[in-house]
Nucleic acid binder design. Structure first.
Lengths: 233, 233
DNA sequence: CTCTTTAATTTGTCTTACAAATGTTTAGCT
DNA sequence: AGCTAAACATTTGTAAGACAAATTAAAGAG
């Protein structure tokens, strides 16, 4: 159990060390946006690590938009300047793992927005998908089974209907953590699920009728139950 | 130019195909949460691709929390059930790249929350960091130079002070895209920067005095200028 | 000086191999 | 037979080498 954490952090430490060295290199060599980094081979020799390690570090920096790797050409400093580069690398290295409370807080914030946007922008196709997800959830609850997954899929359908790809991605990122913790702490029991049907239907109707404010209000109502559960953990 | 996009999408298509196949396999073999997937070697043979391709696909699914790789043991289905698994894989495969409007919309949403949380939870250390970022920004503007980077770093410092690691991560993810587009469309010119100093100071004071509502109001005011620029693009 | 051809670089990928740890099986002992 | 302990096989993670594809730099000819 502990070994897994150890190897993972070992890997993390190595990767972070390489990221830090790449940052130093950019500073020391005064590399500006658009400039090319030394090749992966040279970096691996310079840092005394394998090329795959260098590649992983570069890919992480690419994920956060600080570098751009272009296939048969090289890796380039992104168009964001040295100061932002330094600040962001520092932030990335000190980033801590998300806790449950942080996830729930973010989820509520995101969903109060996605539901409003969905009510404004939803297409007919979105409505169909929402209806499908709603029916699947309702059926599962009426069968007396656990419906946490169907619940979340309905909410993901809303995120998709919002037409905002960034929020959609973020919802996807936090959803597994939400599901796991919900099942762990038994956030949703039978009584809540029964009540959930009505609430989901009201949210769906508000989106269908394109009433953003109403949709938001209903979502807030829906989360009201979660609040008391989540903050009692 | 087009070649890069082609190879990237080629790679994407292969990776998505593998992800899809892994999903099918989980369905077909009725794998439940906690069950072990076939080894990477077996999957690479079964799918007729290299092991590195399989690893990349698994890592992507791990990023979205659907799988868990444990070092010298195997890859396991995450604790989220088959229905959610299928729904999320479908969503992940259809995910589209974020556009500028989507980024700005999300940024505004996130920051109106982080600034409120920062006003409530900020520590003395947070305040020091905020002050540093604020001074760096002010100095740069007074020198008549471009201060987009310092601007964003101040906002990142607020995200950090919010004490919500998820929102902090999300802000880091969207920041490079924001900076790039700001500089591209010249969102912030000299006049705005001058005005920005006062607004930043007001936000800082509200956080310092722990006035969440005031902080949010000042942030909204600050974004008011951005609105008209962003939605005119 | 300009254009074309050639050579060198570089990322992306595949293959092979090994290390480290985990499960599994088997042999030996009581 | 039952239990223990050691050997064996499996699996992920990682390293190293090699090649393809394409870009970039260089050299050479006119």
């Amino acid at each position: 159990m502990k070994i897994e954490i150890l190897t993972k952090t070992d890997n993390q430490n190595l990767q972070n060390a390489i990221i830090s060295k790449i940052g130093d290199l950019i500073n020391h060599k005064n590399l500006e946006p658009g400039d090319k980094l030394p090749s992966e081979r040279m970096l691996s020799e310079k840092f005394g690590v394998s090329r795959s390690n260098v590649r992983e570090a570069i890919q992480k920096l690419e994920f956060y938009g600080l570098l751009n790797s272009i296939p048969q050409s090289g890796t380039f400093v992104a168009n964001i300047g040295v100061i932002a580069m330094n600040g962001m690398i520092e932030d990335i290295l000190r980033l801590e793992d998300p806790d449950f409370k942080s996830l729930v807080e973010t989820r509520i914030l995101l969903e109060l927005k996605t539901v409003r946007l969905a009510a404004i922008r939803r297409t007919e196709e979105d409505l169909e998908k929402l209806k499908e997800a709603l029916d699947a959830y309702t059926q599962k609850v009426l069968d007396g089974e656990d419906a946490v997954q169907e619940d979340l899929l309905f909410h993901l359908a809303i995120a998709k209907a919002s037409g905002n790809s960034t929020m959609n991605t973020f919802m996807l990122i936090i959803t597994p953590g939400i599901i796991t913790n919900f099942e762990k702490y038994h956030v949703c029991d039978k009584g809540l699920a029964q009540r959930g049907i009505k609430e989901h239907e009201e949210i769906f109707d508000a989106i269908k009728r394109q009433k953003p404010q109403l949709a938001k209000a209903k979502m807030k109502e829906h989360f009201g139950v979660l609040y008391q559960y989540c903050y009692n953990v």
